[in-house]
Structure formats: C-alpha cells, structure tokens
Amino acid sequence: MKPSTLIYAAFALAMPFCPIFLNAYWTDVFNNVGLYAILALSLNVILGHAGLFHMGHAAFYAIGAYTTAIINTSYGIPVLWTMPLAGILAGIFALIVARPIIHLRGDYLLIVTIGIVEIVRIALINNVFDITGGANGIFGISRPTIFGYRISKPDQFFYLIWGFAAISIFLLLRLEHSRFGRALMYIKEDEVAAGGSGINVAQHKLTAFVIGAVWAGMCGTIYASKMTIIAPESFSFAESVILFTIVILGGSGSIPGVILGAFLLVGLPEVFRGLAEYRMLVFGAAMVLMMIFRNQGLLPPGPKNYDITSLLPAGGRK
C-alpha cells in the first residue's frame, strides 16, 4: 500500500472521533471546514477538473440556502427534505446562466462569473419577488432532524456535515475515475484536441457547471439549517474567492488536495487568532510564496490507476 493511502485511511478513521476530543468551539471550526470542504469539492469539478475559471460559486450556494430557508419558513417542510430541491434549483440556475457563457475562456469567464455572484447578492438584498427578506435575510429556519433525532449542537452537526462530505468524496471520486471525469480532464488539457477526439466540449463543461451547482445548492441547505438565519452577506464575492483559493492552493483536480486546502484556509486563521490582524497578512504572504514555488498546489492530482493487468500481452508487463 502506498504511504498516501495509509494517511488517507488514518484521516478517515480519526475524523469520527474528533468531537470527543474537541470542545464546542473547535468542533464548530471543524464544521465550518467541512462546509467549505464540500463547497470546494463541488467547485473542484468545475475549476479543478474542467479547468473553468469560475469565481462565482457562492451564487449557487446562495440559491440552495435561500430555497431551503424560504420553503422551510413559509411552508414548514423539514429542512433536509428541501435538500434535493435546493440542489435542483441551483442546478437549473447554473444551466441558465452558464449556457450563454460556456464558450468563454480563462479570465473572460472569470469576470462574468464574478458578475453572476454579485447579481445574485444584490438581487437578494433588493428582496426579489418579495421572498428573500432583503438585507436582513431570512431567520427562524428550523434545525434538521434525522429519523426524529434533532440536530442542534456542534458535535451533532459535525456528523451531519462530515457525513455529507464523506458521501460527496465517495461519489466525486467515482466521477473523477470515469468517462465523464476523463472528458473534463481532456478539455482542461487541450480543448481543440478534446473536440478532435470526439468529446462534446460545450456539453461537458455545462454538465460540470450543473453538477458543481447541485452540490453547492445541497450544501446551502445544511448551511441554512446550521445558522438558522441567512443573509445576502454570507454569499459575497469574498466567499467565492475563498473557495477558489482553496481549490487552487490545495491542488486543483485533487480531492485530497481540496480537503487539505479547506483545513488550511478555514482552520489555520483560527489557529493564528493570536496574531490578530496580522494573520491575514501572514496568510496572503504564504499564498504568494505558494504560487511561486508550488503553483500546481499542495497536493496535485497523481496519476490514475487503471486495472489492465489482464489486458497486457505477455512480456509487455512493466
């Protein structure tokens, strides 16, 4: 077994025991790390695998969170039941806004996606359709219940959030090692060659956007029920930048890298609270150095494994 596999296994085994050793404050920090990890994993499909510079991910997150908040507070439907709808609506929104801009490349796409997240935030502040509660947002969202078991304390949320993270990792790993996942990587490497090899570039990019948005929307449900109050400022451009940074810094296209990135970007500032206002300075400097000396990220994606031993000709084994 490779040493990296052992580390991942140790991490997976250790995580469920964290709330036992952590106090409520640190458990909550871990919960935030988990939320950002799920969001960054969903952004990773778009930014990491397909290589689309998307800096408006908070918009999809917002759609999901507001869907849950509105449906829960207006109709009293339990929050977790709203999760599929939150995901679907975020996905439909992504489909509508990404369709006209899908052919844009690099920095052009980046600028448009910044526009999207700003439009969504301002629309929420202006209380569109009279349902978003304006600048104050929506409050009184209920806590989630699973099989009648009410989740309200940080350690309970820990299992909900990291459980969802575990499912996300499991499914997204499978996605990465598939025809669809490979197609995104071909597109990232060379769009012309991908098209010339028979890959529908626009359709795959769009699907990547929708999958990322659906996941971010579902994550919005958890966020809304954890906070019980949501406001437009939680879904600002700055949030999108943090998510973007997590993916790039951790290693774009690498699921372990993205999780490490979430721990570093969300967890470390808490560790360095003692440095007070200097912590963001230290942080910025660290990121500049990273980009100079290790621009592929901390844990770049490794080569994929293909089980072809049965297919190799005799003597062709390596």
């Binding site: 598939s178 025809r179 669809f180 490979r182 028979g198 890959i199 699907t207």
Partner: peptide, 14 residues
C-alpha cells in the same frame, strides 16, 4: 479519449 464517443455512460452512471 478516442474511445469516448463510442461510450454512453454519463455522470450519474459514473
């Protein structure tokens, strides 16, 4: 990559 267009499985199947 060349075999891609002869396959059908989408993201959900994956």
């Amino acid at each position: 990559a060349g075999g891609h267009c002869r396959m059908h499985a989408g993201a959900l199947a994956a």
